[in-house]
Nucleic acid binder design. Structure first.
Lengths: 342, 342
DNA sequence: TTGTAGGCGTTATCAC
DNA sequence: GTGATAACGCCTACAA
């Protein structure tokens, strides 16, 4: 294809190929038969001048943009590596389906871009990250009639499209794993309190799963929240072990606190897994960086991104179909951070 | 504004307000005087039905999309937290200017989305992350005539718009800082070798700055590359100190290796900064998470994002102006990881 | 197999 | 101050 990316439009191609504009259009879309000869000629010209249909014009005519929106938490709140990897994976998955991705931070009061996307029909559908049990953005999308897939589910789970991780089941599995090893006193290191209080699903359900499983096995269990930071993880462990020195098993869904947890345990002379076992649900990368590598359920972000895009694409293709959703429960990868208590 | 986000277009608003479509348009854009009364009436209707101009139609008519593209490194290569924070910051900065952001991974062979963006006129301009000294994507944009701002500069620095960090100067400052403290034997921990070899500017210029400054102060200096991973940082330190036990000063621009560096130093019994000093150029977060907090130049991602969007917006507004660029040199934040050598 | 023509929703140029 | 009306570039009946 040549250099001049100038102002070539379909009419120009038609003229050069000696056909009508519709023929060019059909040669490209394949929605009507075009003789092999003309098609070849047209494609040749297109390749020569480096033509590509104008996306805006196409969107206007077709009534769809071939783009999806990805609503991310606002920039202020630092994104966790998991969330950020997810963004990249969504873009990749969408790209495979010839969909472009428009990013919109939201949740703060900069919902301007959110509104632009939604009302301005800039996108055909939306993937909504980090959904709360009751979520204003989800409500907004619903009332605007914009198809969307939520990452995490809302309170009315049955009525929408979503992809989520089975935090409840996974955390319960972790608890049972510890119980099976003989642990009697365990603790949950949850995400920050604000998240839990605002009805953030994973935090909520992790807590539920933890408490239920601990009760079922009659373990002595404490659950508390911890800010998403290494430093916070450090003081968390100090405080925890000061208050409850008998704890021998830790379950965490707070990956960002992990480095601090590791540091504190080492400093306090608690070897993992000899003195204390650690497990939970965290990004694979974090599990592997922990010392010793963490026995944990790895958050399958690439899967989640792929499924979310798939669901959305499906929903766009077949608007009528009943809601579908996906609850992922990745296996717990056995590494070396758990063992029987001392 | 009301709920029905349906198919309202400007004609519908015009009808309800009892005016022509153009009047509605002008009431919104302000490009023509509209009497206070009609304007009020129109805005009232718009607010009632929740109308927003269709972005595609507007783009087609105006000849610009009010969207910019952000070209990120492909998903495969894990994005560093700095890069990821940058994405969020760009989106925020663009949002402030009523610009939407389209994401496109590139560099791998998924250049389809890149081409879609560029040739399909989906965006008015592009921000190109992580530019190489000689960069195919930059060349492509240039020949397509798409305005862009590069993060990092290409070999022909003078001819383009870019925003970059003065790695050369910053690393040199770090070296001089160590020299001033009395260090005589230092080492540079650079980004991965592939990046250096492929002409990745920061790696290249960090090396240059390091060698020049070390030579100027007649320090004994080694520079090597290290993969972007904690584990790699760990073995890096082991190898380095085995080979050159006399090293007392470390300069790094590899933030991802930092946790490993910290672990290795601790395990080898080298206290920071008593036995060994550490400094460099890394994301603020990483500097603060290091123990003890790192004396280092903090990569000013928010600034860089803001300036990049600003430059691009300017370039879009005034196509004729000569290239502008910004070389940021943030101060080195004094924390507590450097001291005179033992 | 191919061409003609109308429409998608805006903005912008004329008139009045 | 305001209203018609022609682009913008593409898609897609409807004809031929």
């Amino acid at each position: 294809m040549s250099c001049r990316g100038g102002r070539v439009n379909i009419g120009e191609i038609a003229k050069r190929a000696g056909v009508s504009r519709s023929t060019v259009s059909y040669a490209l879309s394949g929605k009507r038969a075009v003789s092999a000869a003309t098609r070849r000629r047209i494609l040749q010209v297109i390749d020569d001048v480096g033509y590509r249909p104008n996306a805006s014009a196409r969107a206007l005519a077709e009534g769809r943009t071939r783009a999806i929106g990805l609503v991310i938490p606002p920039a202020g709140r630092r994104l966790t590596p998991i969330q950020l990897g997810f963004v990249a994976d969504v873009v990749a998955a969408a790209g495979r389906r010839e969909l472009d991705v428009l990013l919109s931070p939201s949740g703060g009061e900069h919902d301007r871009s959110f509104e632009r996307m939604v009302r301005g029909r800039r996108v055909d559908g939306v993937i909504l990250m980090e959904v709360r049990l009751r979520d204003a953005r989800a409500a907004r999308l619903r009332e605007s009639g914009v198809p969307f897939v939520a990452i995490g589910h809302t309170a009315d789970a049955a009525t929408g499209y979503w992809v989520d991780l089975d935090y409840q089941g996974l955390v319960a599995s972790c608890v049972r794993h510890l119980a099976d090893l003989g642990h009697r006193e365990i603790a949950l290191i949850n995400r920050p309190r604000e998240l839990l209080d605002s009805g953030y699903g994973p935090a909520r359900r992790a807590l539920d799963g933890f408490e239920a499983a601990a009760a079922a096995r009659s373990l002595s269990a404490t659950a508390s929240c911890c800010p998403d930071e290494a430093a916070a993880g450090e003081t968390f462990i100090e405080d925890l072990l000061a208050a409850r020195p008998g704890v021998t098993g830790l379950v965490t869904i707070n990956e960002a606190a992990l480095p601090g947890i590791e540091r504190a345990l080492r400093r306090l002379g608690r070897a993992v897994p000899r003195h204390i076992s650690v497990t939970g649900v965290v990004g694979r990368h974090w599990a592997e960086e922990f010392h010793p590598p963490l026995t944990a359920a790895d958050v399958p972000i690439t899967d989640m991104a792929e499924r979310a895009v798939e669901l959305l694409a499906e929903r766009l293709a077949e608007p009528g179909t009943p809601p579908r959703n996906v609850l992922l429960a990745p296996p717990i990868s056995l590494r070396s951070s758990t063992a029987p208590p001392p």
